[in-house]
Simulated scan of single mutants.
Amino acid sequence: MKVAGKVAVVTGAGGGIGAALAAGLAEQGANVVIADLDGVRTDRVARAVGGIAVAGDATRVEVLEEMIAAAESNYGPVDLFFANAGISGEGGIGQNDEQWQRILDINLLAHIRAARLLIPGWVERGTGYFVSTASAAGLLTQIADAQYSVSKHAAVGFSEWLSVTYGDQGVRVSCICPMGVNTAIHTDALQADDEASQLGANVVAKAGRVLEPEDVAAITLAAIEEESFLILPHPEVLEYYRRKGSDYDRWLAGMRRLQRESAAG
């Protein structure tokens, strides 16, 4: 899909990959609604790219409805929705169910709630595009962070299901699965007080080049033009994924070794 003239909504667009996606979309002629929990950052990005700002929690249906309404009233029906808002876990297995519920709300259920609102209209029109920001952790795993790993696996699974179920009805789906990206999630984990978060971030940093958000956005928009499902800003992830599928036990043993070596420094 060419994005010029299309209407796009980007969640988590106050910074990082979301802000870079919003800028890239605007540069290519799309009309963009910038959504983020942080109203100040949302307004700043909206002014920079000439878009519409909606501040609020993307896990709430009423806020998602506000994003869609803002797009429709200013530009027209939503053509592309970027489910980009996301957070990392607390490290380890998680201390309580509330932590798990929060990360699942943001990294998975927000995607599901947005799709519920958009898919019927897209099927009726015979066109629409859902883009999920997942992670290489959703294809492989995230050492030391069960919540992030599980939620990103689920996000990949939901994207696959959307494509299988609605792909023949004009709905396109892409799933972005990068490794290290220079965003607040990555830098905060590197500087975290708990050893589990630091361990996970250090593994990511050592696994491959840490990309800038603008790199990920450019690769993503090129893949959307080709309507590719799996978007891998780090191409080496595909080889890791193949090794995992070809010999699961060997891959698990290798991941345990990587964990030990990283923990040892």
Rank of each mutant, 00 (worst) to 15 (best):
A22T: 11
L139S: 13
I224G: 07
L258C: 05
V164L: 08
M179P: 05
R256H: 09
V173L: 04
A155W: 08
A155T: 06
S197L: 13
A110P: 01
A253L: 06
R60W: 07
L64Q: 15
I87D: 09
E239G: 13
A136V: 04
G167L: 00
T59Y: 08
Y166W: 01
G138E: 02
F229G: 11
L37C: 10
V173D: 00
Q147Y: 05
L109E: 09
L139N: 00
G89S: 01
Y248P: 01
E66S: 15
T11G: 11
G15S: 15
T133H: 11
L232C: 08
V9M: 06
R243C: 08
R172E: 14
L140P: 13
N74Y: 02
V9L: 07
A35Q: 14
S88K: 06
I219C: 04
L25T: 13
E225W: 07
A205W: 00
G12D: 12
I93Q: 03
A114Y: 02
A19L: 02
T183E: 04
Y241G: 09
S159E: 07
A19W: 04
D193Y: 01
G16R: 13
A154N: 11
L252Y: 09
S262L: 07
V78E: 00
D215F: 03
R257N: 02
I106V: 15
V32W: 10
L108S: 00
G167H: 02
V204C: 05
F130Y: 14
D247I: 02
R242L: 11
V204T: 15
D38M: 04
G16I: 05
S135L: 10
A217P: 02
R209M: 13
A196Y: 01
L80N: 01
G180K: 12
E98W: 09
Q198F: 07
A20Y: 03
A58W: 04
S197T: 03
P77T: 12
F82D: 09
I68W: 06
A263P: 07
L232W: 09
V49Q: 03
D145T: 15
W161L: 10
V49G: 05
G56D: 02
L37I: 12
W100Q: 05
D97M: 03
G12W: 03
V10K: 09
S246F: 12
G50T: 01
R172C: 11
S88P: 00
L118Q: 09
R102K: 15
D249M: 12
R256E: 15
Y75E: 09
L37T: 10
G16D: 12
G128R: 08
A30P: 06
D79T: 14
R250G: 14
A22P: 11
G56E: 00
A155E: 14
G94W: 04
G15C: 09
R256V: 11
G245Y: 03
V33F: 07
I93N: 05
